[in-house]
């Protein structure tokens, strides 16, 4: 399978990316690791006119400590995140979710920014970003803005990113003393999750992000509230699918996904000391 023909430009800096995006508008797509975009283009589900390759912009690949949060460059690859000391010490949940992505070859190429900007409800990384209350730094022709995880994911494969904008950094609160658990249910080792859950307990705060439980990456808000109000894992997990519309497909029906969400969040909460 070969993608439809396209033009290709490699960008060396953020400024160059933004000016190329401005010049080509909707016709352009950013290429980071390519591990969501290239498969889509091979199946011809996407056929951008021009790819702007950001894969070699070194200044966007880093993990740094900044006060009470970790600043992670959008082009940091999955493999770096799952092994990075700062991430392991301050945000174990993010490292654990990242380690479950595909297989080593995929993690050598895929980037955190690409996984988030893709906005796929089936992806593991957004669930961790939601549970951790991460925020996103976006740069475009009119400057820089910061968007919280809840406002970033807007629809199926849709995010708050405008066509001319670049995701540059992910900010993850440092929570070295939190308890957490990443639960992923699938049938074969390298598969995507049928349902997954990122669970985080930090002091009295509870964060639960779900995989494949709605048309977009989403938090289990009713469950979180119940835990914060003192409910047990058993009681709170009953609310895991509250108000959500999980998809029905060959792997699982809507009802079965709701069941899995209850089981996985219960396990996750128990592993996190609830």
């Amino acid at each position: 399978m070969i993608p439809a023909a396209f033009d290709y430009q490699r960008a060396d800096s953020k400024e160059q990316v933004i000016s190329l995006l401005k010049e080509h508008g909707d016709d352009a797509k950013i290429l980071a690791g390519g591990h969501s975009l290239i498969p889509l283009m091979k199946y011809r589900l996407a056929a951008p006119g021009i790819l702007v390759d950001v894969g070699r912009i070194e200044e966007l690949s880093y993990v740094r400590e900044e006060g009470d949060y970790l600043a992670i460059g959008a082009l940091t690859r999955h493999r770096e995140i799952e092994t990075n000391e700062l991430v392991l010490a301050n945000s174990g949940l993010l490292a654990a979710a990242t380690k479950q992505v595909g297989d080593p070859q995929v993690r050598h190429r895929g980037t955190i920014g690409g996984a988030l900007a893709h906005g796929d409800p089936a992806s593991d990384i957004p669930s961790a970003a939601l549970a951790l209350r991460a925020s996103f730094i976006i740069e475009g022709p009119s400057g820089e803005r910061e968007v919280g995880a809840d406002d970033f994911f807007t629809g199926f494969l849709e995010t708050a990113l405008e066509p001319e904008e670049l995701l540059t950094e992910i900010r993850v609160p440092k929570l070295p003393n939190s308890k957490w658990s990443f639960q992923k249910f699938n049938r074969r080792a390298q598969d995507w999750a049928i349902v997954g859950a990122s669970v985080l307990i930090a002091d009295n705060q509870c964060g639960v992000g779900l995989v494949n439980m709605d048309f977009k990456p989403i938090r289990a808000a009713s469950l979180e509230e119940a835990i914060e109000n003192g409910a047990s894992a058993e009681e709170a997990s009953q609310l895991a699918a509250d108000g959500l519309e999980p998809p029905s497909d060959l792997n699982a029906s809507t009802e079965y996904r709701s069941h899995l969400a209850r089981v996985l969040t219960k396990r996750g909460l128990q592993e996190s000391g609830k």
Binding site: G34, R79, H108
Partner: peptide, 18 residues
Amino acid sequence: TVHLNGESVKSCTVLAVQ
């Protein structure tokens, strides 16, 4: 699978220009 700069990658999912 081949190595790109020493790391395993699936070469059906990498563009030659990359």
